[in-house]
Design a protein around this nucleic acid. Structure first.
Lengths: 233, 233
DNA sequence: CGCCAGTTTGACCAAGATCAACGCAAGTGG
DNA sequence: CCACTTGCGTTGATCTTGGTCAAACTGGCG
């Protein structure tokens, strides 16, 4: 059912651009990370292109340089769920087993670094600080995913959308407004709702003056406090 | 709101019993794990006792020896979500940050090993194979949690319960029947349903001959195939 | 025997899904 | 340059699943 599809305009081996460095430098482990970056290759994907598919062999993992990636799963009858959106600096496709447990797709145009599994593993095994960094990242992501299960299992549509807007606002460090690179459909599949409910809830927030929508992809947050109150866990 | 509560009949430092060893021996890293076990202490908790609370400082992590533990989160108005059930061999409370992001409670009577953070960290840092083992465990758990987000966001009540029964049956390696140490309420809060819906769905499965319920806590699975068909992802 | 906690069942209700139409802006081609 | 298409996004009407409220059942235990 899932076949490997060769995708992306591969631009060959190269150093990552300056914009990729901050996420990495933050950890203060430059020596190890320079080594890591030397084994990585830079790749571009365009809107809706598949980066890897559920069921593929996991031979490498990725870090987003620019753009956004969605990690999704399908059910046999076509129902889709988006487990996660990844933005600049986020890693994805770390292999829990030999096979991909989900599909990764470009939300818009995207640039990623790709690290071959074997070489990265070797580097990780001989660099305790890198091992620790990867471990900590994964633990943080686990915590985040567990928080998302609370959203999905117990929050109303309004609370889910509020928590989504705040999550994006915090992750991208833009407290007054949020840009939505993904479609209403993507948001719905991330929040366990339908596109229509997402729209209606956006409209309700707008009516109540909690948000403004200059364009469908730009959300201003005059009523940030209201959103925060709404989804106090 | 969440205060540290001293809980559990602490039985003092001791070696783990034989029943704790298999989970650990499986990884084939006996040297490192023996060292790990030497820094652990054994503790017992009784039904519904709190092991740690959301907001506590994370100073240690745990591994279940026997019994079951639930990891849960509350919303301000009392809505509860169970992120995870842990059984013999499972680790919990690995610290993604300095503070607990969820509460851990004993489902029934439970025995756990507790590992102080500092000592375990030191051991992990100087034992690459142990570091790798912890990292791999965490990645597997992340994958499992992401699968759970699919269940919560896109599956019907029947599909959720089917996936739950199969998950337990596989984790505990009992293909023909499942024991439920937790209440209907716990199951509901894990599956994002109400207790009543869980009951009704059990009853529907029973009516259809998919399961038998000799007692409310024991489920026999004559119709395992039907359950599998039901939640084909 | 009666109580209690957990479970089951029933009647009714509501949040969100479904189905359908409409709006709107960005192409596209004549 | 303007009709036409196309792909999202928005809104409305209706329906369904699962939630809510309430009562009855069951097994263990003082």
């Amino acid at each position: 059912m899932y076949q490997q599809v060769v995708t992306g305009k591969v631009s060959g081996i190269s150093q990552p651009p300056a914009s990729a460095v901050p996420a990495v430098a933050r950890s203060g482990q430059l020596d190890a990370l320079v080594a890591l970056e030397q084994i990585g290759t830079r790749h571009s994907f365009s809107r809706d292109e598949e980066i890897y598919a559920e069921g593929d062999a996991s031979e490498c993992w990725y870090q987003v340089v620019s753009g956004a990636v969605r990690i999704c799963k399908w059910m046999a009858d076509g129902r889709r769920h988006i487990a996660e959106f990844c933005f600049a600096g986020d890693c994805f496709g770390l292999p829990a087993s030999g096979t991909r447990s989900a599909t990764a797709e470009a939300v818009g145009d995207v640039v990623v670094m790709r690290y071959p599994q074997r070489a990265a593993d070797r580097l990780i095994d001989e660099t305790p600080r890198l091992a620790r960094e990867m471990y900590d990242r994964t633990l943080r992501e686990l915590t985040q995913t567990q928080t998302h299960t609370l959203v999905l299992s117990r929050m109303t549509a309004a609370e889910r959308l509020a928590s989504f807007l705040l999550e994006l606002s915090e992750r991208r460090d833009t407290p007054r407004a949020v840009d939505l690179p993904m479609s209403r459909y993507d948001i719905a599949d991330y929040l366990g709702l339908t596109m229509e409910t997402v729209c209606r809830t956006f409209s309700a927030f707008k009516r109540d003056g909690i948000i403004a929508l200059p364009t469908p992809q730009r959300v201003e947050l005059p009523g940030r406090d209201a959103l925060e109150t709404m989804c106090e866990a």
